[in-house]
């Protein structure tokens, strides 16, 4: 499978996750978000950028519970809860947000 962004064809897996992490740009994120029916707001970007930072530091995408806790620590309890994150990413903060962030599917996320 693949997606088209700015005239370039980028390879994805069968679930729509980017195969090459280096292909990611903000434009790519917008294209994936559109396909997921997510309109990217500042709050969405905050989570997506948080995930990218997490991945750069630890080389994995975090499990939902870990993401929620880590976001709470960094951005406060208003944002570090699953209600807030599921409102932003209805199909799951880890799955949907990771996809938009260009990361692999979180380990342990069935």
């Amino acid at each position: 499978m693949s997606i088209e962004v700015g005239g370039k064809t980028l390879e994805t897996d069968e679930e729509g996750y980017l195969v090459n992490l280096a292909d990611w740009t903000e434009d790519v994120a917008n294209v994936i978000a559109q396909a997921e029916n997510v309109e990217m707001s500042e709050n969405h970007w905050e989570v997506v950028n948080f995930l990218r930072d997490y991945y750069n530091e630890y080389q994995i995408a975090p499990a939902v519970r870990v993401l929620t806790k880590a976001i709470g620590k960094k951005l406060g309890p208003d944002k570090g809860n699953s209600k807030y994150l599921y409102e932003l990413f209805p199909y799951g903060p880890a799955k949907q947000a990771c996809k938009i962030a260009g990361l692999p599917k979180p380990t342990g996320c069935v």
Binding site: E57, Y58, Q59, I60, P62, A63, V66, K69, A70
Partner: peptide, 14 residues
Amino acid sequence: VKNFSPTYRALEGY
């Protein structure tokens, strides 16, 4: 190959 050594530092968060 992927350097997975930084992932050991994520264990605390788990």
